[in-house]
């Protein structure tokens, strides 16, 4: 299989970037998309060129470290998968594949296809936790939680923090990411004590980081590898209101 990659190259955060073309042969459809890039990088090394920087770690769709724009879509042509789960069988021999980093003001480019998503960590830092010290927990079954509540909390908690939601959104909103975490913790009895504070502080931080506002286009939901629903955002908005009244 032979494809032409058009890849964004940028030396550093302040450097000028541009798209460069790479014709790559010798691929096969069982290769993952990232393995095709690995192959390209090996060829670049042998040609004495610098390798393309792109991110990954687990390569099984759970760590959230990978993520690039492929032919204009976050994580490539399919709904609800990560870049590392994409395989070359999704492309045809002779295709041109355009690869760019996430584009969002709050995710500055570090190098080539790598962006800085530390804004997410800072949102988490503002309250995505339960303030209880190690060693102070009561017996686990002393607080029953209905299966329904636990399942819904799990649906929201499944977020892998890849940032595709932000990248897919025309406003670069982080509402899906933030709402999923807030709903996960606020819906559990353990998270109730701090629910209003958490909602207020995490959403405040989200704004401080410069993420845009949500206009409910639903673009995020389609790209989310964990299929996290935008109903989370509506729920968060209701919680924001409540937190203003009750805090």
């Amino acid at each position: 299989m032979k494809v032409t990659f058009k890849i964004w190259r940028q030396d550093g955060p302040h450097a000028q970037g541009n798209i460069r073309d790479y014709v790559v042969e010798g691929l096969n459809e069982d290769m993952s998309f990232l393995e095709a890039l690995d192959h390209l990088n090996e060829l670049l090394v042998l040609k004495n060129e610098k390798v393309i920087a792109y991110e990954y770690d687990c390569r099984e769709g759970i760590c959230g470290q990978c993520g690039v724009f492929i032919n204009g879509r976050a994580h490539g042509p399919h709904d609800n998968i990560t870049t590392c789960q994409l395989h070359m069988r999704s492309f045809n021999d002779g295709d041109t594949i355009v690869v760019e980093p996430w584009r969002a003001a709050s995710f500055p480019v570090v190098k080539d296809l790598i962006v800085d998503r530390s804004a997410f960590d800072r949102i988490i830092e503002q309250g995505a936790f339960i303030t209880a010290k190690t060693g102070t927990a009561p017996e686990a079954n002393s607080i029953p939680i209905s299966k329904e509540v636990a399942d819904r909390a799990m649906d929201a908690a499944a977020c892998i923090g890849c940032g595709a939601c932000v990248a897919a959104c025309k406003n670069s909103s982080a509402a899906l990411f933030t709402s999923a975490k807030i709903n996960h913790l606020n819906s559990l009895p353990q998270g109730k004590a701090e629910e209003h504070k958490r909602t207020a502080e995490m959403t405040f931080q989200m704004e401080m980081e410069g993420f845009g506002s949500c206009t409910f286009t639903g673009a995020c939901e389609v790209e989310c590898p964990e299929s996290i629903s935008i109903t989370n955002i509506a729920e968060m908005n209701a919680r924001i209101l409540k937190s203003k009244l009750l805090r």
Binding site: F129, I130, A132, A137, I143, I145, M154, H184
Partner: peptide, 13 residues
């Protein structure tokens, strides 16, 4: 397990 339940892990129920 007590610890992780306290920390909000949504274990299966």
């Amino acid at each position: 397990i007590d610890h992780f339940v306290q920390q909000g892990v949504p274990f299966a129920r």
